[in-house]
């Protein structure tokens, strides 16, 4: 009888010992994969990238500036009375993502609107003072945002994100 013919039926005869050894190899292989996956997640220095402080004293009502925070654009817009009015007057049932205007700005600071300038549809940067609601308009796929940064029309599913920020002084805000 040849040695090889042993091998043919030997393949089927798996016993507990062989299965355990195989399981160890499997677990080891899976464990080895994780570092290769996790290395693509944000590194410690990126995660630690802290806040940006912005001087807003030079912004006049009806103006907006764009600053960079964690590599993303942030809109800081000083709204006019009319714009605030337009934002508060909306019926919540007309909104795809209902939110009142006063949760979107700091208490007593209704004229200051701070938003992450990234369209919630697919990540383009919307243009300010444009679109049907005079808030923002995203040129990529036509989403219209109002003067509170809420989605009103178009494919975007949610309102523009409000980042974590605080007023350090009346003319200084700290984002992040």
């Amino acid at each position: 009888m040849s040695a090889a013919s042993h091998g043919e039926d030997g393949v089927e005869r798996r016993d507990f010992l062989v299965i355990t050894a195989g399981a160890f190899v499997g677990v080891g292989a899976v464990g080895l994969v994780w570092p290769f996956v996790d290395q693509m997640n944000p590194s410690a220095d990126v995660l630690a990238l802290s806040s940006t402080e912005v001087d807003i004293s030079a912004i006049e009502p009806g103006q907006s500036i764009t600053v960079s925070w964690r590599g993303k654009p942030v809109f800081i817009r000083r709204r006019t009375e009319a714009e605030i009015e337009a934002a508060t007057a909306v019926d919540l049932s007309d909104l795809p993502d209902p939110e009142t205007d006063d949760v979107r700005h700091k208490e007593g600071k209704a004229e200051w609107l701070v938003l992450v300038g990234i369209c919630t549809h697919l990540g383009c940067v919307p243009l300010g003072f444009q679109g049907e609601y005079d808030g923002w308009f995203c040129p990529c796929h036509g989403s219209h945002y109002d003067t509170s940064g809420r989605i009103r029309k178009g494919p975007a599913p949610t309102n523009l994100e409000v980042p974590e920020y605080d007023f350090v002084t009346d003319t200084q805000i700290k984002i992040g």
Binding site: W34, P35, F36, D38, Q39, N41, S43, A44, D45, V46
Partner: peptide
């Protein structure tokens, strides 16, 4: 050094 200190498992890799 960035790999060694900040990248997840960078030192290991």
């Amino acid at each position: 050094e960035h790999i060694m200190r900040d990248v997840n498992y960078g030192w290991l890799l």
